[in-house]
Design a binder for these strands. Structure first.
Lengths: 151, 151
DNA sequence: TTACCAGTTGACGTTAACGTCAACGTCACC
DNA sequence: GGTGACGTTGACGTTAACGTCAACTGGTAA
């Protein structure tokens, strides 16, 4: 039990705990490890995830939502545990980080434009409904629910 | 030459013209058509693209950059040529449009957070370089270029 | 002991979005 | 009447990101 860098009393997670918290499957988590995005401790066979792993997973999922591939996410996550690598390595890493920021800025512009277009499309549709004397904000005709999980 | 809805004098494009303008392959364009995102006229076998198709392609590519799948993009594009469909159809369409807007807003938040994190990571890296007396803004050691195309 | 979890490692299946290749048509031109 | 350039339709290959399934390994509660 002589823990290493971890605060020794720090909270840990099993793979299913993590999978439930983040609403993904254990399979996905193992897959991320296979791709070098996570490196949990082991107790024999079983994986034990630390707070740090928790944060990493958070970053991974957010990164996916903004469109990064797992390979890119690996690069990005490595930004944090570089610590004191070789100078050349640091410089390259810095370059890729800057590159990703640029593409993200552009992506945000794309999103803003798309939102704007959807907005006009919506008003267009709403006016069509109004012409027919229908309230555009009424809910749809009683959706069939199927045991909805967490939002 | 008796054109239909088109302004008759309106500019048209061949598939390779479009592919070059947007830096994609003809294969991709045909694929989009196969998935119902484009409906070009035909002159015998050959496809003829109108201004409207041009705009659609623009929207498709932007949509892809913000993470929409081709199936989703098809839905979105259909928002524009609904015209005067069935009332029920209009309402459902309106719902999906609103849903996409919500997810886009969230995605923009994700992007902003990611940018912020990358920014701190960058300053971290830069300070490491400064500690070693290195200018963090010098370009990398003479990248090998290989006949770069358009930016 | 048996039974049942929770977890593990392969191995193969799947979907999306094209790439690649083959075989073919067709026009202008020389 | 051959030869490109440009276009077409299949059909199969490929990569990413998992899903699915099978076979196995401890622990533990009845």
């Amino acid at each position: 039990m002589k823990a290493g860098a971890e605060p020794a009393g720090s909270k840990t997670y099993s793979i299913t705990q993590l999978s439930e918290e983040f609403s993904i499957t254990p399979r996905a988590i193992r897959f991320y490890e296979d791709r070098g995005l996570l490196h949990p401790r082991r107790d024999g066979q079983t994986r034990i995830y630390s707070q740090r792993d928790w944060v990493r997973l958070l970053l991974i999922l957010r990164g996916k939502r903004v469109g990064f591939s797992l390979a890119e996410l690996r690069e990005i996550l490595d930004l944090y545990d570089l610590g004191d690598g070789q100078t050349e390595q640091i410089r390259r890493t810095l370059e890729t980080a800057r590159g990703k920021m640029v593409s993200l800025e552009r992506q945000r512009q794309d999103i803003d434009q798309t939102i704007a277009e959807l907005k006009t499309a919506c008003t267009h549709l709403e006016s069509q409904l109004l012409e027919r004397g229908i309230d555009p904000h009424l809910p749809l005709p009683v959706q069939r629910r199927r045991r909805a999980g967490a939002a």
